[in-house]
Amino acid sequence: MSAEAARQPAAGPIVDVRNVRKVYRRDAEEIVVLNGINVQVPNGEFLALMGPSGSGKTTLLNLIAGIDRPTSGEVIVAGTDVGRLSESELARWRSHNVGFIFQFYNLIPVLTALENVELPLLLTSLSKKERRERALTALKVVGLADRAGHYPRQLSGGQEQRVAIARAIVADPGVLVADEPTGDLDAKSAEEILALMESLNRDFGKTIIMVTHDPRAAEKAHTQKHLEKGVLKA
């Protein structure tokens, strides 16, 4: 992990969302999910995004992660206007710049923990040995090096989520986005995951944007923002 590099103060915000609108069209009906969102996230920030169900949290997170495009406005992450990239450029960009953590972990069941973590590295030119080493390092960071050979079904929910976090950080992206990462976990496991994310933010300088319904989870963040009916409230 290039923790030093990531901790360098950036010139501007690492995430810059400007006047973003997201509209879904269903037949003649228009559903405005995001209506003029502006948000700047400085490098090294730990931001919690809250709001009622259906308020557009996931939608905003997907825009920042570059897996969706805004209807209008700009999403600039790590200096790149995500909306301008082609489909394949965007895929490549994602693999270098964002790590995604899902509510339901979404590990690949046929692969071991180590292989799951290694997966993003298959897109790099690293040798097999280097890939293994890097994946193992990431597993060490989340405290699961001893489970490298285990399959997802042999792990608890909390452990699965830690493997998923290892997968998100293995390619050393600057930004981590997490959509309700503790939503499916018991209190104790949730606590561990949050501690891990705090550590990634503090010790490795990762900028984290986390969607959550849980006020205790949100407390761990430096900043909280509330989304309501497609509009951000501080």
Binding site: A65, I67, E87, S88, A91, R92, W93, R94, S95, H96, F100, F102, N106, I108, L119, P120, L123, R167, A171
Partner: peptide, 16 residues
């Protein structure tokens, strides 16, 4: 389906 979405999220292109 989910797995395909995950692969794409991780940066696999549609072609890959």
């Amino acid at each position: 389906r989910t797995e395909i979405a995950v692969l794409k999220t991780l940066g696999f292109t549609s072609r890959q």
